[in-house]
């Protein structure tokens, strides 16, 4: 069984009187352990698709099955629990909490789980920060870090709870190309080490090349789906 399955997913935004059809019927299957990119022009529906998979949106029509659950049928509370345990998010602009240290920002994801012991929390947070190359920055505040470092914190936060799926909407859009590649290297390494499934969107062809599977969206439809060798 695949980790994620979308069937005939449509999303229509109501903008005043105008209906915007952001997704026009998406059928997609993602297997556990994939490292997949979503490309396509601006406005093609990448963010909408990722939000849908991330259970932040419900599809207007269609079915999304994540890990055996039909998520469009779950109540809000359960979606929150699903995100809390099984989904990691990496954002374009990092979204770190400025009053928390690097350590605390990452720790938050684990504390939310509620049943992890303090000692284990510490171990896991330190380990993940080391593996994204931030072992020496544990007690810094976000504003003392570079963009690339912030994005690594954000990756660590998404991964520390060992989710089944990590979603990243244009994770490198604010980074220069060298840093972008570093960040992708880290993501790829985590994908291999932890067998975490990644789906990320990007405009950047260079970044796309890191993916093992490349999807291309246009006007709310998948127009290309190819393997990268």
């Amino acid at each position: 069984m695949s980790l994620l399955k979308l069937q005939g997913v449509k999303k229509i935004y109501q903008q005043g009187r105008v209906e915007v059809e952001a997704l026009r019927g998406i059928d997609l299957e993602i297997e556990a352990g994939e490292f997949t990119s979503i490309g396509g022009p601006s406005g093609s529906g990448k963010t909408t698709l990722l939000n849908m998979i991330g259970c932040l949106h419900r599809p207007t029509i269609g079915q999304i099955i994540f890990d055996g659950d039909e998520i469009e049928k779950l109540p809000k509370e359960e979606l929150a629990m699903l995100r809390r345990h099984n989904l990691g998010f990496i954002f374009q602009d990092y979204n770190l909490i400025p009053v928390l240290t690097v350590y605390e920002n990452v720790e938050l994801a684990l504390r939310l789980l509620g049943d992890v012991e303090k000692k284990e929390i510490k171990e896991r947070v330190v380990n993940i920060l080391k593996s994204v190359g931030l072992g020496d920055y544990i007690n810094r505040k976000p504003n003392e870090l570079s963009g690339g470092q912030k994005q690594r914190v954000s990756i660590a936060r998404a991964l520390v709870k060992e989710p089944k799926l990590v979603l990243a909407d244009e994770p490198t859009a604010n980074l220069d190309s060298k840093t972008s590649e570093d960040v992708l290297e880290v993501m790829l390494e985590m994908n291999q080490k932890l067998t975490t499934t990644f789906i990320f969107s990007t405009h950047d062809p260079q970044v796309m090349e890191y993916a093992k599977r490349l999807l291309t969206l246009k006007d709310g439809k998948i127009i290309e789906d190819r393997k990268n060798s």
Binding site: K76, M81, R84, L108, L112
Partner: peptide
Amino acid sequence: TKEVGMMTALGVKS
């Protein structure tokens, strides 16, 4: 506001 969005994504309930 943005942080609230982030926290919701992290699984914090409303």
